[in-house]
Simulated assay, not measured.
Amino acid sequence: MSDIKKKSSRRRIFDIIQIGNKDDLISRSFDWFIVTVIILNILTVFLDTFDELSSLKGVFRIIEGMTVIVFCVEYILRIWTADLLYPDKKPLAARGRFLLSFDGIVDLLTILPFFFLSGFIVFRMLRVVRILHLFRVNAHYDSFHIITTVLVEKCNQIISSVFIIIVLMLASSLGIYSAEHDAQPEAFRNAFSGIWWSVSTLLTVGYGDIYPITVIGKLMAICIAFLGVGVVAIPTGIISAGFVEQYTKNQHSDMRISDINEVGEVLVDKNSDFRSKTVREVSEKYCIQILVILRNGLTIVPIEDVTIKTNDILIIRTEKLVKS
Rank of each mutant, 00 (worst) to 15 (best):
T49H: 08
V122N: 05
R295W: 07
E153V: 12
V292W: 03
V167H: 02
R295A: 08
V37T: 12
L168M: 07
I19T: 08
I316W: 01
L40D: 08
I165M: 06
Y286S: 09
D88P: 03
V282E: 00
L25E: 11
G20T: 01
V301D: 06
M255E: 00
S160G: 15
N138V: 06
Q18S: 14
P87K: 12
G175K: 05
R295L: 01
W197C: 08
V45G: 11
E153Y: 07
I315V: 09
F30M: 10
P185K: 01
D15P: 03
G228W: 05
E265C: 08
T307S: 05
D88R: 08
K249H: 12
T278K: 07
G65P: 02
E319T: 02
E245L: 04
D23E: 13
V232N: 05
E74N: 09
R189C: 12
Y86V: 04
F274V: 00
I69D: 07
E281F: 07
G58V: 14
Y141D: 13
L267D: 01
I222H: 10
T318L: 00
L108P: 06
F226A: 14
K277N: 11
R95A: 11
S9F: 15
A94M: 08
V205A: 10
E265D: 06
R97Y: 11
R12M: 10
F98A: 00
L314A: 09
E265R: 07
G217H: 04
F14N: 15
I146M: 15
G206N: 11
I239H: 03
I121W: 09
T67L: 02
C287H: 13
I308C: 03
G175W: 03
F14H: 14
R317W: 02
H145D: 15
Y207D: 01
T36M: 14
M125R: 02
L132I: 09
G58M: 02
L298V: 06
T44K: 02
L202G: 05
V268A: 00
S258C: 10
V231P: 01
I105L: 02
G175L: 11
F98V: 05
C287W: 11
